[in-house]
Write a protein that binds this DNA or RNA. Sequence first.
DNA 1: GCAAGGTC
Length: 661
Amino acid sequence: MGKILCVAEKPSIAKAVANHLAPAQAQDVRGLAWLKNYVFDYNFGRTWGASNVVFTSVAGHIKSTEFDQRYRSWNSCNPSQLFDAPIVNYVENDKKVIARNIEEQARSAQVLFIWTDCDREGEHIGTEIRDIALKINPRLEVKRAKFSNIERAHVISAAKNPVPLDEKQANAVAARIELDLRLGAAFTRMQTLALKPMIDRVQELKVISYGSCQFPTLGFVVDRYFRVKNFVPETFWYIKVTHKKEGISVNFNWKRGHLFDRMAVTVLFERCLMAKMAKVIKVQKKPTSKWKPLPLTTVELQKMGSRFLRMDSQRVMKIAEELYTKGWISYPRTETDQFDKGIDLKQIIEKQQQDGVWGPFAQGLMNGGFKQPRNGPHNDQAHPPIHPVNYVVGVQLNDEERRVYEFVVRRFLACCSEDAKGEATDIEISYGDEIFRTHGLIVLARNYLDVYPYDKWESSQQLPQFSVGETFVPTEAKMFDGETTAPGYLTEPELISLMDANGIGTDATMAEHIAKIKERTYVMTRLKGGGRNGGGDGNIEATSTGTRGARGGRGRGRGGRGGRGGGNSGSRQGGNRNGGVQEFIPTTLGVALIEGYDKVGFETSLSKPFLRKEMELQMKAICAGTTTRNDVVHQNLEKYREVFVRTTQQINVLKAVSLGQ
DNA sequence: GCAAGGTC
């Protein structure tokens, strides 16, 4: 029998796949408890037939990329030389054990079968494994498995249908690695060396870093800061009609919302008053529903953590990783918001039946309440949505772990239940030449809301009976004024959304970039709503008082789905929990960097997110074969070298802004 | 003393 060496990207995949293929004997690799070789026999059928298998894994990338030794010291060269200084690829000390295991196993194998994640980084990790193995054993046949989840049938099918490694995807990643290193190091050294003497008053300041992700992240914060700072409130006017019927006071909102022209509103208002009678022109009752949430992705978990679990994104990820390592939840880094058809969701629900709090709800799902989860638009082809794997009783977890676990479970159960159902009533009246309307909601069946307290959808006050054609003299009609209010500073969920939408970082790294711009003192955070240290400095978010304040023209209790974050008008509890959200304010240094680069005036300001987007497109082009790694690297290096030269020439501009000019 | 991407 021939020997097949299988290598996954991480131990959990090796374990799961090996167990699907055959009962395996697990051997620790050189005393590491977390790295194992699974040894078993398996028949690969037409491809390789009956074989001895060793199924092992790496732990992410094995090799590091660095400048040649001569260029590593900051004084060794002019930072501009980093654009073409030689680069070396090597195995870091802490990865040597992993590399050696691959070598040892590859020596006696006929086939190297790669099981890294089926994404670009996975493809690149695959080539790292291949290079190490081929160096020891050049006669190896190299294949990879194509799989998008670790369900048994899917894995078995992948095992029997190996495909070639995709060199193009690996090359796209190699281009990214080289560009991030060269540009990051060159700009970081240049900036730091040029600016540090200027701002020495900040003693602990060490490095003024540049990175293709951290700078756009900072850019978002600064951008919002200026929108807040430069905001000029505008006065608007509107008409509100109130009518009391059957002892219920109903507010009718103006269909036009509000106008910025006082005279116009006055004229329209007087026409209403002259008309005296209002007439009901529409009464519509219709069934409505609030959709259950989508299956949970990493980005969504981080946003919800900031909103409801009182943890920043980095903390949420740390906790989620621990829950994953202990086997309570699935892999926490995923972009997928659709469950694969093959996955046995009921078996997951079943395990939650024993819980004292949400157990009864899970039982309800088992007893006929189950509904297939919605499918979101994302699928990373590597991991399922985050879901509970095993039941753990709350007392076994610490407080933070319990909050995250509970959220993951509730979210999952909500996904598997029915949308909330209600009845919406829309009433419109004409009054003068104007139309006013009100909206009512009766929640008929809460369904998923019973297990998912993070969403709010509540019945509005009962509306009295109105019928079309009915006329009345409104109890009250008044003209009000209000002022547009400034946006708030950027919150963490908003920042994550922006990064996600602009392709800044990945699900696994977004929290790190946010932490980095804090660590570099480019930004400060504080509790939104003027928390502890929210002292004297400007309460920018104008508060609405009395008759002032924007009313966006929405009826009460509307509760649109997918409610955007921030100022959620209707929900009392949601509002309270929002008190835990951090807001981001750039420091003088942070503002200076972004402003400085904007002022130096390239069309390609380093703070702008589209540079990273361009890079993403170029990587896709490499994958598609329409360009090559070499072309992308060289084109970008030339482009950024120009930026680099112009920045060093105009470094005084950057210095001036940093000094607060 | 620099980046971003994997993962333990």
